[in-house]
Amino acid sequence: MKIGVITFPGTLDDIDAARAVRYAGAEPVALWHGDEDLRGVDAVVVPGGFSYGDYLRAGAIARFAPVMTPVVEAARGGMPVLGICNGFQILCEAGLLPGALLRNAGLHFVCRDQTLRVERTTTAWTGGYADGAEIVIPVKNMDGRFAAEKSTVDELEGEGRVVFRYVNGNPNGSLGEIAGISSADGRVVGLMPHPEHAIDALTGPSADGLGMFRSVLGSVAA
């Protein structure tokens, strides 16, 4: 199975995402922001960083990159897409996920080991977790406060599309402790914390993040 990992100018966690894909047993394929097709991949990870320096607004410029056209098209056709941190921001800007990520409530960049509860295990990226599992993965961002209109949040909650929720403290003031959400069909998932930094207890707080990259293998095979 091939999983594409996109690099925009300013992307930082692409090598981490590619490593996580490898650890999960899939083949990472580097996608460049200027690419106009997805090189035959079965799923796409939009990794974290500061694409285009976060200038204008996090993710606002990246979503116009050529590679995003086939990503949006493929996602609408059911291809699994995972947006991590800046990738989540880009997917929101691209209209694949609702809501927006605003400046952290404390106005500081926050990097900490964060406990999350897996609220939904029927997405392409969470099938391998137990319902309600608590996982520890790093959160690190400046603009991580999830915000959306009340009607949107109600819809997300009502449809069970809140995939991850912060527990033991909300690091950025996100509405409803929301750390990650999915598209209606559960194929597109975006989250602020970084599963690719939690694939090995040697270099991360746990190996809990690997589950996301493993989950997608089953999801595509099925």
């Binding site: 960049f109 990097c111 930094h197 270099t203």
Partner: peptide
């Protein structure tokens, strides 16, 4: 102080 610094990026921090 240190919570404002990314210590994880690149995946090599032991």
């Amino acid at each position: 102080v240190t919570e404002q610094y990314d210590r994880y990026v690149r995946g090599g921090t032991v």
